[in-house]
C-alpha cells in the first residue's frame, strides 16, 4: 500500500496493462515525449518506446478513427483526447462509427479500444475546456463509460477498460489529478459496471460521480452533524450501470439525491431518477432531488465557476431541505 496521486495512477494503470499485453498501445497529442499536458503519461514513452507510445498531430478524428481501425486489426489501442470538450470535434467517429459498427455489421466487428479524456471543471479554463460531458457518452448505445474518483479506481477501472472487448471511454477528472489516495501494491483490476458504497447511512442516498464523489462525502459529514445519516454511492461507471446498488440503497434510506457536475438537462442523474421513480417509487418517502450545474456553459472566473458546479454547501442545503 502506498500513496499515489490520481495523475500518477493514470500512468501506472496504463503501464500495468502495457507490460501485460504488447497489443496495448497509446496515442494522442503530447502523450509521448512530453508525458501528457496533465503529466498523466509520464515515463510511458521511455518504458515502452516510440512505437507503442506515440505523439499525434492535433487531429482528433484521426486519433479516434485510427484507434478504431487498429482495434479492427489486432491491437488494443488507447487514444487520449486532451480535453473531453474535444470529443465534439470527433463525435462522428465516436458516436457514429465506434459505437455502432458492431451492431450495424451484425456482430462482425469487435472494437477493444479505450478513449481517455480529461473531463470536468474547477480549473478556471472557461467554457471550452471544463465541461462535464460524461452524459453525452452515456446517451450513445455502444459506448461504455467510466469516471473514477480515486487513484486506486483510476488504475483498476483503466485496466478493466483496456481488458474489455467493447469500446470504453474513461473520463479522468482534471480537478482530481493532484489528489492523492492509498493504492494497493501489485496488479489492480476492477470491474466495469460496479458502483461502490463509500459511506453507509440510513436517511438519504446520495449518488455521485468523479469529483462530485468528494463533494458528496464532505456534505455527508456535515449532514451527519445535523442529524442526517447519508449513504454515499460512487457510481464509477455509467455504462454498464449498477442499478442494484442504487435500488438497494434507496430501499433502505427511502430518499435519493444525485450530485452531478453535468448541466441540468438530461444529466445522468435524470436517468437515475427515472429508474428509481419507475422501479422503487414505493420505497421513496419524498421527492428525488438533483443537484447539478445550472443549464449554462461554464464561466471562467473562479467566483462564478464555484457558483456553477455543485458545492458542499449546495448539497447540504438541498438534502437538509428534502429531509426537513
Amino acid at each position: 500500500m502506498a500513496e499515489l496521486s490520481y495523475r500518477d495512477a493514470v500512468a501506472r494503470g496504463l503501464a500495468q496493462e502495457m507490460e501485460r499485453d504488447e497489443r496495448v498501445v497509446l496515442i494522442g497529442e503530447d502523450v509521448a515525449k512530453a508525458g501528457g499536458v496533465f503529466k498523466t503519461t509520464v515515463g510511458l514513452y521511455e518504458q515502452f518506446g516510440p512505437t507503442r507510445v506515440r505523439d499525434t498531430p492535433i487531429s482528433e478524428e484521426a486519433i479516434t478513427g485510427m484507434i478504431m481501425g487498429a482495434a479492427m486489426n489486432g491491437l488494443i489501442p488507447v487514444g487520449e483526447l486532451m480535453f473531453s470538450d474535444f470529443l465534439a470535434t470527433c463525435w462522428d467517429i465516436v458516436a457514429n462509427q465506434i459505437a455502432k459498427t458492431r451492431y450495424m455489421t451484425g456482430g462482425q466487428v469487435e472494437l477493444p479500444l479505450v478513449i481517455r479524456t480529461a473531463n470536468g471543471g474547477g480549473s478556471r479554463f472557461g467554457g471550452q475546456h471544463a465541461q462535464s460531458l460524461e452524459n453525452w457518452a452515456m446517451a450513445v448505445p455502444g459506448l461504455k463509460v467510466v469516471a473514477p474518483a480515486t487513484p486506486a479506481d483510476v488504475i483498476g477501472l483503466m485496466a478493466a477498460a483496456i481488458r474489455d472487448p467493447d469500446p470504453v471511454i474513461v473520463f479522468e477528472h482534471k480537478a482530481l489529478f493532484a489528489t492523492k489516495g492509498e493504492v494497493p501494491d501489485g496488479e489492480i483490476v476492477d470491474t466495469l459496471g460496479t458502483a461502490r458504497v463509500l459511506r453507509e447511512g440510513d436517511d438519504v442516498t446520495i449518488v455521485a460521480l468523479a469529483a462530485m464523489v468528494h463533494t458528496a462525502l464532505d456534505a455527508a459529514k456535515i449532514l451527519g452533524g445535523l442529524g442526517i445519516s447519508a449513504e454515499v454511492i460512487d457510481l464509477r461507471s455509467l455504462v454498464p450501470l449498477d442499478t442494484q446498488t442504487i435500488l438497494n440503497s434507496v430501499a433502505k434510506t427511502t430518499r435519493l439525491a444525485t450530485v452531478e457536475e453535468n448541466p441540468r438537462l438530461v444529466g445522468w442523474g435524470a436517468e437515475i431518477s427515472s429508474l428509481v421513480a419507475e422501479e422503487a417509487f414505493w420505497d421513496l418517502d419524498g421527492p428525488i432531488v438533483r443537484v447539478t450545474t445550472p443549464h449554462i456553459p461554464l464561466p471562467a472566473a473562479g467566483e462564478l465557476e464555484d457558483l456553477a458546479i455543485p458545492s458542499v454547501e449546495r448539497v447540504v442545503d438541498a438534502i437538509s431541505a428534502m429531509s426537513g
Partner: peptide, 27 residues
C-alpha cells in the same frame, strides 16, 4: 471487406488505423 461507412470521410482514419496495426504487428 472491413465495412461500408456512410458518413463522408469517416473511414479514412479507420483505414489508416488498420494499416498502423499492420505496420506495428509486421503483418
Amino acid at each position: 471487406a472491413m465495412g461500408s461507412y456512410a458518413i463522408v470521410g469517416a473511414h479514412l482514419p479507420v483505414a489508416a488505423g488498420a494499416a498502423w496495426a499492420a505496420q506495428l504487428r509486421g503483418t
